[in-house]
Structure formats: structure tokens, C-alpha cells
Design a protein around this nucleic acid. Sequence first.
DNA 1: TGTCCACTGGAACGTACGGCTT
DNA 2: AAGCCGTACGTTCCAGTGGACA
Length: 410
Amino acid sequence: MKKNSTLDGIFESYLSNEKIFKNRNVLRPSYVPEKLPHRGDQIKRVGVILASTLKGGIPSNVLCYGKTGTGKTAVVKYVLKHLSEKSRELSIKEPIIGYINCGIVDTNYRVLAQLNKSIGIDVPFTGLPTDEIYRRFVEGLEKRGSLMIIVLDEIDMLVKKSGDSVLYDLTRINSTLENAKVSLIGISNDLKFKEYLDPRVLSSLGEEEIVFPPYTASELKDILSERAKEAFQDATLGPGVINLCAALAAREHGDARRALDLLRVAGELAERENAEKVTEEHVRKAKSQIESDIVTETLKKLPLQSKLVLYAIFVLTKQKGSNIITGEVYSTYIDMCQDLNIEPVTQRRVSDLINELDMLGVINSSVISKGRYGRSKKIKLTVPKKIVWDILEEDYRLKKLSKYVSNNKE
DNA sequence: TGTCCACTGGAACGTACGGCTT
DNA sequence: AAGCCGTACGTTCCAGTGGACA
């Protein structure tokens, strides 16, 4: 009992410390709220399509479009959740739901492996031919004998990286299945990704298409207010906090996820300061913290060669501003490799690495023609030099290169 | 008006690796 | 054990090109 009283004290003080938050998980992107403001139309459309499962039908395949944070995933998850509940209520066999985030699971093999996993079949993560994994999936599903709704989130990433052959298989799978059936829900951030699809896949996958427009600032405000009620203690949000979060996120193509992140981080900052209220100042701090966190995380994970290329770009940026071209990067890179005794990769490869850095949003590169003087990529660092330098400096393998950086301040 | 630079970016292929089947 | 398979990372080869300059 005595021991517990100390612990109790810790718990109590911890609990009473929750001056700001009531439940911060409400603000996390994975949370599916009870209400989804301004998505009534989309919910209705997905609902109508999926409702046919309640009468034993096979719903049409659906494609959802919209930029990040426009509620695509939330709407789909929301409808599926209610569909499962309804099925249970009516004691109809529940559909199996397979959710795959193709941003992470981005090869044909791994998608199929993941699908196997969601019907309870363990498959090795490598070693088997893809057909075999597919065959096992079909067999397993047939044994289960029910409808499976497969959600392919960020489907454009899969198609861009690995083509559409799994999609082709999945869209035709129903003709090989006897007892079981499959229906697909594709979610895409990219409106143009249809161009990469085989027309046969497209016509099957895109039986229904639902577009998710970006949220406007005032819609974001509603969403935030709704969630804030759940997430925060009463009267802890200062005036203008929600408006500011909404406005900042609206500027970024109406990204609700971003808006919620801002609100959550602002709250956490206020909490850390032991403040009574969350202020607009906290939101501004949250904004810059989120931005640098994202960049820091991606930069840390970069493989050595990419870091070297980034190093070269960084050094050139310090030396001569933003007008950098591939040739310069490559020769600086070669010098650096010599200093470090590292085998350099070819220029072709560096070109790809530059493209990858571009995709990550660390740099901005665009092909330009300098006429007589050839064609190249113009490269510009798009994140603060300070952040880049902090990461590069941290890597012990790159220690020797600090001589390239004249003055380390700033 | 055509030339020709300094690359770009597609395609095919090589190698190392972990891990399967038989 | 041998022989495949998929993935990651890279190479080699090369046709293609926007536009400043002669």
C-alpha cells in the first residue's frame, strides 16, 4: 500500500496535469470520427455502392480522387466501419476488409502478401514467385467463401512504381472465384494516374468515381471545431487558434490532416510550457516545428549516396546561390567521394538520385536548356540550409567533408 | 537556319542478398 | 544441395532534345 501511494501520487499529478488535452488521439490522422463534416455527398455515394453487400450483391469497384488530407481514407473507413456494424446487426456474413497502404506496400508481390495476411495466411516476404502468392490468395479466399473489400490507398504510388499487373489480376479475380468475391476501392492522390493504367483495368476499377475537392478554410474550421470539442478541455483554446490552423492548412491545398496536426502540436507545445491556454503563437511555432520535423526525418533516412549528392548541392548553394546544374553537382560529388575513399556512382545514377531528392521535396529541380551550352537540370534547395546542415554534420561518415563548408555558422 | 552542347531519361542488364521449393 | 524468385541498388548504352549561337 505504501509503495502504491507514491505511485498514486505520480499518476495523480500526471492526470491533473492534463490541463490542455482531454483526448489527443482524436487529433491523430488514424482517428475516424463520428461525424465527417462536409463529406456528406461522398459518404452517401460510397454508402450506396457498398450497400449492395447487405443483400448479398457485389459492389462496383470504386476510385476515389483527391489531394492529401481531403478525407478520402476517412470516408472509406467510416463507411466500412458502419457497413460492418450493420452486417452484424442484421446477422449477415460480414465482408472481409483488406486495407493496404500502397505508399508503403508498393510492389505487386508485397500487395499480394499483405492480402494473404489479411485473410489469415502467412506467406514469406520474399522467395516465392508472384503467381504462387496470387494462387494462395485465391485459394484462401475461396476457402473463406465471403466477399472481400480491398482498399488500395495511395494506389497511384503502386502503379507508378510497379505497374498495374496486380490490379489487372485483382479486377479479373471474380471470374476465377466461385464462392468468394472481391470488390476494390482505390484511393488516389493523383488525378492523372489513370493515364498509366491499362484501359481494361481502368474500365473495371473506375466503374464508379468519386472526387474529393480540397476543403476550404471555413470547412476546415468546422472540422477542427468538431474535433477540438473532443480533444481539448473546455476553454483551453485561445481566440483565433482554430481560425489560424484552418487558414494555414487551407493555404496548403486544404489539407485537413495538416490542420489537425497543427492543432495537436500547438496543444502539445502549450502543455510543455505549462500554459493555461493554446495561443496563436503556439500554432505558429507548431507550424515551423512540423515542417522541420518532416524534413529532418526524411533527411536522416537518406542512404549514403543520396546524402553525398545532397551535400554537394548544399555546398554549391552556399557558394553560389540557387543556380546549380547537374554537371556541377556531379563534379563536386566526385571530389567528395575521393576525399572519403568512396566509390562514386555514375552520372546517370546521380541524375536519378537528384530526381529522388526532388520527389522528397528537399530540392526543386527542373530541366532547362541553355542552348549552345546544353541541357541540364536547374537545382534549388527548398528547405532551410540550417536543417540540412544539422543532418549532414551529424553523419560521422561525412565528417571529413566539413572543409567544403567555409563558415559553419548559419 | 541549322548545329550541337550537356545533359535527360528509357531500357536492359548485373550483382548481392535473403529466402523460398524440391 | 541446387535452382529459382523478388528487391535494392547500380551500370552500360544510347537515342533524344530545347534553344543560344554561328
